[in-house]
């Protein structure tokens, strides 16, 4: 029996580790989650008031629509998605080589460029952590 991606301890533990550095990179971070392509939240940080499952479902739909637009217009692979609103923005980046997407919500106190750089770096960090994964470890408290 295969374990669902969002319940896989490998993705959960490495995801937590990768997300733990995101707030330092972009202090205006309100909420972030690694989600599966089909919209299951794997691991989240900050923003307890936010429904992480709904956020993950919406991020999955948004990502799929953006991918479809890139595909229809023959633009090649979609690299990232940005939803910029008056009081904040959402940045979404795929984790290369894994069926995961990072979706992060920032307030308007961060520039979109800085948020995007922080999100991309965090997605890359997860990729590195997963490549180095050899089994369960005790995470620092």
């Amino acid at each position: 029996m295969t374990i669902a991606t969002h319940l896989d301890p490998k993705y959960i533990s490495r995801g937590e580790l990768a997300l733990s550095g995101l707030k330092d990179l972009a202090p205006s971070l309100s909420f972030a989650t690694f989600l599966t392509e089909d919209g299951f939240s794997v691991v989240s940080i900050a923003g307890a008031a936010l429904d992480s499952n709904r956020f993950a479902s919406m991020a999955s739909s948004t990502q799929a629509l953006a991918d479809a637009v890139a595909r229809e217009l023959k633009l090649g692979d979609n690299e990232f998605v940005i939803v910029a609103a008056e009081q904040g923005h959402v940045v979404q980046v795929r984790v290369e080589g894994h069926p995961l997407i990072l979706a992060a919500l920032f307030t308007d106190k961060e520039t979109i460029g800085k948020s995007l750089a922080a999100a991309r770096r965090t997605a890359r960090r997860l990729n590195v952590f997963l490549s180095a994964y050899t089994g369960p470890i005790d995470l620092p408290e």
Binding site: H6, T36, E37, D38, G39, S61, D67, P99
Partner: peptide, 23 residues
Amino acid sequence: VVSTEAANSDRDASDKPTTTVAL
């Protein structure tokens, strides 16, 4: 058809490889 299918990671709910996530 414009599709928005993603890999189905919850094969217990439905045993199909992909699922529609937007439209």
